Computed example of a mutant assay.
Amino acid sequence: MTDYAGVLAVREGRVVLVRERYEEWEDEQWSLPSGAVEPGETPAEAAVRELLEETGLRVRVDQLSLVAEVVVESRDGAARSTAYDYRAEVPDGDFAIDDPDSSVQEARWFLPAEAIPLVGAVPYPPLSQPVAAHLEGAGPTRWTFTYDDAAVAFLDRVYEVTRSAL
C-alpha cells in the first residue's frame, strides 16, 4: 500500500481545505490537501509538494510540525499504509490549483469550527477523524485503523481504531 502526507495549512486562525471529487465518494468533499508520497520523497517533502499542487500555497519542510501519524492496516498484516498529517503556518500566497490528478475543484480558507463538520463528513475515517480531532484541539496523536478485509475496508468502513499520543 502507498504512504500519504498532507498539510493543515493555517493563516490568521483559518485553515485551508480543498474540495475534491473521487470516484469512490458519492459526492465532492472538503478535505486536507494531501496525496501519495512518491518514490524518493520523504513524507514531509510530499506534504509540501501536495500543498503546492492542490492550493498553490508554499511552505518549507522546516515549517512543518507532525500532528498525526495514521496507520491503516489489515488485521492479517498483509496490507499497511501510513499517512503523515502536518501543520504549517502560511503567512502569504494566493490559491493557484495545479493538481495533476484533477481531483481538486477548489481551495478555500475556513475557521476551524466551520472546517470540523466538513472534514468529518469525508467518507474515509483514516482521512477525516485525525484531522477533525486536531481541529478540535487534540495534541499530536498516532492513530491505527485496523480492518478485516483489504478489498472491502473502504466500502464497508469497518474499522477498529486505536489512538495514542505521539
Score class of each variant (00 low, 15 high):
Arg80Pro: 03
Trp30Ser: 01
Pro91Phe: 11
Ala47Asp: 06
Val71Ala: 09
Val152Gly: 10
Tyr159Trp: 15
Asp98Pro: 06
Glu160Ile: 11
Trp109Gly: 01
Ala107Phe: 05
Pro43Ile: 03
Ala165Gly: 11
Val161Thr: 11
Val104Glu: 01
Leu111Pro: 08
Glu12His: 09
Ala150Gln: 15
Val37Asp: 03
Pro91Met: 11
Leu135Pro: 01
Arg14Gln: 15
Val90Ser: 09
Asp62Met: 04
Ala133Gly: 05
Ser74Val: 07
Ala36Ser: 10
Pro125Gln: 12
Glu41Trp: 06
Gly120Ile: 02
Ala153Cys: 09
Arg142Asp: 13
Ala138Cys: 11
Asp99Cys: 01
Gly93Tyr: 05
Leu155Ile: 05
Trp109Ile: 05
Glu50Ala: 04
Val48Ala: 02
Asp76His: 01
Glu136Ser: 14
Ala121Leu: 02
Val104Arg: 02
Pro112Ala: 00
Pro112Arg: 01
Ala165His: 09
Glu50Val: 13
Arg108Phe: 06
Val67His: 01
Gln29Met: 13
Asp62Ile: 12
Glu114Thr: 11
Ala115Lys: 08
Glu28Pro: 00
Gly77Asn: 11
Pro130Asp: 02
Gly40Ala: 14
Leu51Val: 08
Val61Asp: 04
Ala133Ile: 05
Glu114Asp: 15
Leu166Tyr: 04
Asp3Cys: 05
Gly35Asn: 01
Ser103Gly: 09
Ser65Trp: 05
His134Arg: 08
Thr82Met: 08
Gly93Asn: 04
Val67Lys: 05
Gln63Ala: 15
